[in-house]
Write a protein that binds this DNA or RNA. Sequence first.
RNA 1: GCCGCGGUGGCGGAAUGGUAUACGCGACGGACUCAAAAUCCGUUUCUCGCAAGGGAUUGAGGGUUCGAGUCCCUCCCGCGGCACCA
Length: 763
Amino acid sequence: MSYDHKSVDGKWQKRWMDAGVFEAKEDSSKEKCYLLVEFPYPSGDGLHVGHPRSYTAMDIVARKKRMEGKNVLFPMGWDAFGLPAENYAIKTGNHPGTFTEKNINTFRRQLQSLGFSFDWSREVNTTDPAYYKWTQWMFLEFFKAGLAYKAEMAINWCPKDLCGLANEEVIAGKCERCGTPVEKKLKSQWMIAITKYADRLLADLDTVDYLPKIKKQQEEWIGRSEGAEIDFAVDGSSEKITVFTTRPDTIFGVTYVVLAPEHPLVVLIASDEQRGAVDEYTASVKSKTDIERGDETKTKTGVCTGAYVINPANDEKVPVWIADYVLGHYGTGAVMAVPQHDDRDRAFSEAMNLPIVDRPLVSFDEAVEKTSGRKKVQYKLRDWVFSRQRYWGEPIPLVHCEVDGWVAVPIEQLPVVLPVVEKYQPSENGESPLASIDSFVNTKCPQCGGAARRETDTMPNWAGSSWYFLRYADAHNDNEFASKEALKQWMPVDIYNGGMEHTTLHLLYSRFWNKFLFDRGHVPTSEPYARRLSHGLIMSEDGTKMSKSKGNVVNPDEIVNEHGADTLRMYEMFMGPFSEPVPWNTNGVIGVRRFLDKAMKMTEKISDREDAEVTKMLHKTIVKITDDIEGFGFNTAVAQLMMFVNVVQEKGSITKESLMTFLRVLVPFAPHVANEMWENLGGEGFVEEQEWPVADASMLKDDTVEIAVQVNGKLRGTIVVGSDETEEAIVTMARADENVAKYVIDEPKKTIVVKGKLVNFVV
RNA sequence: GCCGCGGUGGCGGAAUGGUAUACGCGACGGACUCAAAAUCCGUUUCUCGCAAGGGAUUGAGGGUUCGAGUCCCUCCCGCGGCACCA
């Protein structure tokens, strides 16, 4: 006999919703706890089994914290701008919002079918004008602070779709949709000066509790290096080449200087004899895609410009080359080459038959001083390209006026709502579809009232997700993105869980965004997340990534229908360590369902008395579950719950009191089953409304312990002794063991006793 | 190439330097049944042995230690991230 999961699941989900038990309260008498999971992109495929892994884990934490008396905020929403909806719109001509809404409804139904204790009253949706009004408002804050600026940028361009592509849409150098190799195209783009925050984004990592590997990824992405800028005068010219180097101490070993092909000085200094070769080389580099350029990391190419520079340390005259191993966008786009100390310079020298000299090093400071250089800190981080020539994104709320230039749309006119368009395809020259809507584009300048044109680019996907955690604090506020009081109550997020795939960009962007708002006095903390954890991916049974094209995607609905919500929840917790990737195994699901059936049957074993073993196990279980939830060891927590039920089954009876206590540690994992049992036993209200149990320390101690007896470290027997037995008595008993005595004939050289664990005789 | 993580039964995995293989799946045997499913009981790292018990075993090889899956060194394999950042 197994329990009827369909009626049990539905019954409790309805009751939780009706009672609003999981809604966070603006109640300062309790300590707050803000638990955040990454809000999903509501794709047309519906929920993936990967989603509930993170959500269940944090749901368990949330339920436990509530029972411990915390005021918990555990919200959910939708990161709903995105390409799939736009592609769907291009294909069908329907509005992407229709598609998005349908998908959100599916996701919401699926999440609710798993009984997560989300506070649905605070649901947010990035595509809702009431939400993106504030995304636009924040962009204007960047604009007003001078951090948003326009610049010519090379963007990814698909020559077949006539369309600009985001980096994420370029797969292996090809257009994600049509497979055409992607080209570079210069376009004027809105940029946000995240590099101004590079030092703080790096330094403040010391103030947060992230997994070390996550910190490391942030550090590497920011990529700080210390060095110096040194000027090399161009021989016979007033020009100078400034290089950035982290090794000024190698200055005497410089044999040539290299410019990136896109360096502006190239055209100025190339000699007449070399000009042809230089132009040819520059053109060939331009026509290469990033991948082609990257592919050639082993064979270095370049040409001599015919110009020479003077090494400021020793007045040596060295040639100037151009080569694409030097990047235009990093440092000064120019490098002093020291083949003696740098592998890349050495490889280039060997390829071009350039000399490699052996010169002594000088100290860093001495070299900087001798060359009149400047100490300099460089970052790999680049400013954030914020424009997309796309329909399905937040319109950038600026207008361009002939007289006043770029002007912010006044706050009372926000949001700038996405207009209705005929077609969602970008235009021939790569303009956003919004550019073809005259009624949208033509407007008046808010400053002078003259004719002006609206910006038609939209924001990238990252925008809405850069601040959603703030909106949850006060999700329905029309006057502010969130009130100061609400933000003060909830921020920072106590634990933020998400995938490793978001630990560079999303994490960095949202930290930056929050810091900026902090500087403007809009949010109370400089860092948004006190703690960041990540979960491992759920792989398919063969260990590869689940994907629709391979047809190995598991639909969570099927598991819920067949075995119930609690089975899916617990299986996802049981399948392996939370932070590691684990393969899905449909066979394994059945084990969890069997456990839940056995757990349900414990209500038939109620008795006035129970075996002492059961009582002891209950208290051990309380301790183990409490610790495991704190340490995110959900798989071993589930194992412990199983062991408890196994003991009850073996002993045949349990008191009602013990069982009801057990339900309080079961409920975070299997809330439907736990509540159903609770009700069957005559419990009042919800199990979630009970206090988290505390183990009785006196119950944790065993009367007797089994002790291993080793001889020279090899196990030769076990003895059972009283837990308070003296060492002496234990050693005597150990030696008395028949099998042990065979090996310990003479007095042992040494005897090691580890209390409660083992005795080791060294003979 | 560099950095990080990992390698334990047939499978997913467990183990503050202290009885390796918990828990689950699968498999095998038994009970119940006309039969099957479900359920329950038992066995299940390999190996020698009727048994008592012995031997081997945590990717490979060394080392430290009374004792190593765990610590150290060398190497192999897998996964993830970064990748000409001067």
